[in-house]
């Protein structure tokens, strides 16, 4: 799963500091990035690059971890043993992806604990999509199909992002994600071909998840001033609007193939552009969810904080035991 790049207070400060960098080093750095070379942890990099990366990678990691919650909500209620195992394996993958990404961000000098603190205090953001509730089993299908589908659009180009550890994490993630979207679409297609109640469930899930999925690509390009620099640094490879359009173009026929209707009366095929035109996105809703006003934002944060705080004594005990054992071994 993935995150849109969301802004926080650090960002302005980061942009300014580029002017303070050694121009010679900066030019050499920019040239390497432009030549598709990878930047590795110990290489010189502008502070703004480091900060932008830490923010983006940790947001991405937080999204994976928070993203475990809406789907985890249905593991114990999955309708059969096969679906239960698939869903558990999938949610476990999201945890693994969070882990890879935290590790990639840690190579930039920020610890996992610092990043988790920033998430819990509300300073760090995560993808807005996970602040919507999973009401029925069809939501598990919709998340796999739409949310993971949108994630893949964004993640595939990031396998060639300029920061080596991030790119390598994305290669592993993309490989593992390949079954996620398919399992979601399979759930939806079975429901869409099922009883009237199941079909209703599937259509309702599509209705609720469609627009939030389009919002996952982030604000429109003209409202996303950071895109240009991020694209130049290969932290981002394509713009929000380009990716969003591609998502609509591939997803609409998939909905039609299983007899579901995309909830957008303005949706029409544009022959000239070879793409779908689609209706206006409710950006007010998007910005509200970014501000933490999503329907289940409180529950998501609360669950993460609780797991972390409830686990504190476990983490302490393991460290205490390890140091006791080390002392004992040294004495022997």
């Amino acid at each position: 799963m993935y995150t849109t790049e969301l802004k926080d207070k650090d960002q302005k400060a980061a942009a300014v500091s580029l002017a303070d960098e050694d121009p010679e080093k900066l030019a050499a750095f920019e040239a390497r990035v432009a030549a598709d070379d990878f930047i590795e942890p110990k290489d010189w990099m502008p502070e703004a690059y480091r900060k932008t990366l830490v923010r983006q990678i940790s947001q991405h990691a937080h999204s994976e971890i928070v993203g475990m919650l809406p789907e985890g909500n249905w593991i114990t209620r999955a309708p059969n043993l096969r679906r239960k195992a698939i869903l558990l394996a999938k949610v476990q993958d999201e945890g693994g992806h969070g882990l890879y990404l935290y590790a990639a961000a840690e190579t930039l000098g920020t610890s996992r604990e610092e990043m988790i603190d920033a998430l819990h205090s509300g300073k760090a953001k995560y993808s807005t999509i996970f602040n919507y509730p999973t009401l029925t089993w069809a939501d598990i299908g919709a998340i796999g199909w739409l949310v993971d589908g949108a994630a893949i659009m964004n993640q595939v180009p990031l396998q060639r992002t300029s920061y080596g550890p991030y790119a390598r994490a994305m290669v592993r993630i993309c490989k593992e994600e390949s079954f996620h979207q398919r399992q979601g679409y399979e759930i939806m297609s079975v429901l869409a071909a099922g009883t009237a109640e199941q079909k209703r469930m599937a259509q309702d899930a599509l209705n609720r998840w469609w627009w939030p999925s389009l919002m996952m690509f982030g604000p429109p390009d003209d409202k996303s001033p950071n895109t240009a620099q991020s694209v130049r640094w290969r932290i981002k490879r394509e713009t929000n609007d380009e990716l969003r359009q591609r998502f609509v173009d591939v997803t609409v026929p998939q909905a039609e193939a299983i007899g579901l209707r995309v909830p957008d009366p303005a949706l029409t095929w544009n022959d000239e552009r070879g793409s779908y035109d689609f209706g206006a996105i409710d950006w007010e809703e998007f910005y509200a969810v970014v501000r933490g006003e999503g329907p289940v934002a409180k529950e998501r944060t609360q669950a993460r904080v609780k797991a972390w705080e409830d686990g504190a004594w476990v983490r302490e005990a393991a460290v205490a035991h390890a140091s006791k054992r080390a002392l004992k071994m040294a004495a022997e």
Partner: peptide, 9 residues
């Protein structure tokens, strides 16, 4: 509170 951070491997 003792240090609860697990080292990186």
């Amino acid at each position: 509170m003792t240090n609860a951070n697990w080292p990186l491997w």
